[in-house]
Amino acid sequence: MPAVSALVEGRDRAEVAALFRMSVRVVDNWWVRWQAGGRDAPLSRPRGRRTGEHQVLYEAE
């Protein structure tokens, strides 16, 4: 959130990326999510398959 706050204050994307030691691409992704969904949007989302999606049932089950 500090990176997004810096962008809101008017700082340049490259400056924010250097300040927080991340790529400009990550800054851009967070900014787009923040614009689309507000304060909680840039937070990490669960990764991988949904629970139970990878489980396979055998014929007997």
Rank of each mutant, 00 (worst) to 15 (best):
1 M>P: 12
1 M>E: 02
1 M>D: 01
2 P>H: 12
3 A>C: 07
3 A>F: 02
3 A>R: 11
4 V>N: 02
5 S>L: 13
6 A>M: 10
6 A>N: 06
8 V>D: 04
9 E>K: 15
9 E>Q: 14
9 E>A: 15
9 E>M: 13
10 G>W: 10
11 R>H: 07
11 R>I: 08
12 D>N: 10
12 D>C: 02
13 R>H: 03
13 R>C: 07
13 R>K: 01
14 A>S: 06
15 E>N: 12
15 E>H: 09
17 A>F: 01
17 A>W: 01
17 A>L: 03
18 A>T: 10
18 A>Y: 05
19 L>S: 08
19 L>R: 04
20 F>I: 07
20 F>V: 05
22 M>D: 00
23 S>N: 11
23 S>V: 05
24 V>Q: 14
24 V>A: 14
24 V>H: 10
24 V>W: 05
24 V>I: 07
25 R>C: 10
25 R>D: 03
25 R>I: 04
25 R>Y: 05
26 V>A: 15
26 V>P: 05
26 V>M: 14
27 V>E: 06
27 V>C: 03
27 V>H: 06
27 V>W: 10
28 D>I: 00
29 N>L: 12
30 W>A: 15
30 W>M: 15
31 W>M: 06
32 V>K: 11
34 W>M: 02
35 Q>C: 11
35 Q>L: 11
37 G>L: 00
37 G>D: 02
38 G>M: 02
38 G>P: 02
38 G>V: 03
38 G>H: 07
39 R>M: 11
42 P>Q: 05
42 P>I: 02
42 P>G: 04
43 L>T: 02
45 R>W: 09
45 R>P: 04
45 R>E: 12
46 P>Y: 04
47 R>K: 15
48 G>P: 14
49 R>M: 12
49 R>Q: 15
50 R>C: 06
51 T>P: 13
52 G>E: 00
52 G>K: 01
52 G>A: 01
52 G>M: 01
53 E>V: 01
53 E>L: 03
53 E>N: 09
53 E>W: 11
54 H>L: 15
54 H>T: 15
54 H>K: 13
54 H>D: 15
55 Q>M: 07
55 Q>G: 09
55 Q>D: 07
56 V>F: 11
58 Y>D: 04
59 E>Q: 11
59 E>V: 15
60 A>E: 00
60 A>V: 10
61 E>P: 03
61 E>G: 05
61 E>V: 07
